[in-house]
């Protein structure tokens, strides 16, 4: 049966203030049951305070074959990394 059901991507907010993070996917016949299935599959051990489900077919993904032009140009631009500053010891949370 589940192979007939559309796939949904599941995002969990683990606690207030944090972003939703992708945790996996579920099959479900519709959005409401997708939320139920996401709850029962991914938040059984108190992993979350909020859930999003998104139809997997609505995700626009980059093409793996184009990974070269997409990502490699960033590889040799080390000046984009903020690693050239000395951070004083007193500064926390960086």
């Amino acid at each position: 049966m589940s192979s007939d059901w559309p796939l949904w991507e599941v995002f969990v907010r683990s606690k207030g203030g944090l972003s939703h993070r992708h945790v996996g996917s579920v099959h479900a016949p519709d959005a409401q049951l997708a939320l139920r299935h996401a709850r029962d599959t991914y938040t059984r051990r108190m992993e979350g305070v909020s859930l999003w489900v998104v139809p997997s077919k609505e995700i626009i993904a980059s093409v793996p074959d184009e990974a070269g032009p997409m990502f490699e140009p960033a590889a040799d631009k080390i000046y984009r990394h903020p690693t050239f500053y000395d951070i004083p010891d007193e500064v926390k949370h960086i």
């Binding site: 589940s2 059901w5 099959h27 479900a28 139920r36 299935h37 029962d40 599959t41 059984r44």
Partner: peptide, 12 residues
């Protein structure tokens, strides 16, 4: 159960 998700749901 008819689907893995339903399996988990019923077990819960």
């Amino acid at each position: 159960a008819p689907a893995l998700e339903v399996d988990l749901s019923l077990a819960n």
